[in-house]
Amino acid sequence: MLALQLLFNALALGAAYALVALGFVLILNATGAVNFAQGDLVMAGGYGGLVLARMLPVPGVVLLPLLMAGMAALGLMVALVAYFPLRRRPPEAVFISTIAIGIILQNGTNILFGPELARTPALLGDGEFRWLDGVGGGLVVSAQSVAIIVVAALLIAGLHLLFSRTQFGRRLRATAQDREVASAIGIPVDAMVAATFAVGVALAGAAGLLLARGFFVTPNDGGNYMLKAYIAVTIGGWGSIPGAVAGAALIALFEVVFPALPALVPALGGPAFSQNGATIVLDALILVILVARPQGLFGEASKARA
């Protein structure tokens, strides 16, 4: 029963991380550059949700599309100031310009909202379902967790449809595959890159709204989410969308299930299963993946990295 509970928790957390990682990988594909502000944009999404909730007292699920529209606009701005002026430069330039965006977002929210913990409204409500209360602690499923999983699944499915079924999506994909070829066949590449920033940042914002209910938000949260997206995309295979989702799920498993293994399997124990131990094990695993399987666990070897 505990195993089921932990798996469920990991699924909810992984679903939110997947949105962060997806936004990251979309921008990466379209520009070849790391958006180091992705984590801070998740944080900004949390505060954006907070602002909307103060203006409109409605459930989070109603705020979500509004927030995503606002975040898409923010994404365009990020593209305008931190990507387009640098698009003919080596990728490190964007790496650093987005670090600057992150610093601005972090300190801007600190000034506007203060350093205190904040919390966004629930997507639907704060109810919870309990099963089998007597058995090993029972299984508790909160409405928020279910809503996170459903919303994330819908967004990922929507993204998939966008890419596979629409002209717009096909153009986005062509741009991501090869900007020069796309430009040669008449696709407005700059507009496509801008649209990718809008979609990627909207996903970060959605993740921010989903995460900031159960786990709160402070202006300092960005770095942590950034690292998770970066790691998820590396595990999954640079540029691979299913890989990013799988990578996010693996990170969530390492955060939620791996450190709890001693409680599930009494024979296990030791420092490797402490929370910090789990982080070090995951870090070591990523280094091994980077060195031994450069195409990622799920990716194809289309883009060499060494």
Partner: peptide, 20 residues
């Protein structure tokens, strides 16, 4: 005994281990 990083999100594993 368990030391937690400030970024730890889900407390279920810690509680499960304490209970176990």
């Amino acid at each position: 005994e368990e030391a937690l990083d400030v970024a730890v999100k889900d407390m279920a594993p810690v509680l499960a281990k304490a209970r176990a």
